[in-house]
């Protein structure tokens, strides 16, 4: 029972991810897309943590930790890439 519910939570969060893709597709600004990536990353962490409990694989928690630690790399690369004021 608990296992099925955990699986359903994963499915629900994955649905969120798929829905978030729409924001990336339509934008309209680069910042909007990066926001979607931010939510994507956070949801991925949640999914991996639930998977760790669901599949009984504790090492997946390390993966989640890695995700949150390195989440800022892409954001920093983005802020350094697309200069403020450059947008169109």
């Amino acid at each position: 029972m608990t296992g099925v519910l955990l699986g359903l939570a994963v499915v629900f969060l994955l649905l969120n991810l798929l829905a978030g893709l729409w924001r990336i597709a339509v934008g309209p600004t680069a910042a909007d897309r990066m926001l979607a990536v931010l939510l994507f990353g956070s949801t991925t962490v949640a999914v991996i943590l639930i998977m760790a409990e669901w599949l009984g694989d504790g090492s997946l928690r390390t993966v989640a930790l890695l995700f949150v630690v390195l989440a800022t790399v892409v954001t920093l690369a983005f802020v350094g890439t697309v200069r403020g004021g450059e947008g169109s």
């Binding site: 998977m51 694989d57 790399v73």
Partner: peptide, 22 residues
């Protein structure tokens, strides 16, 4: 990376999280 986690390959998920995604 999520797929590696799901497939039971945490070694790959770790590498992918740092390299593939970041």
């Amino acid at each position: 990376s999520l797929s590696w986690s799901r497939l039971g390959a945490p070694d790959l998920a770790l590498a992918e999280a740092a390299i593939g995604a970041g």
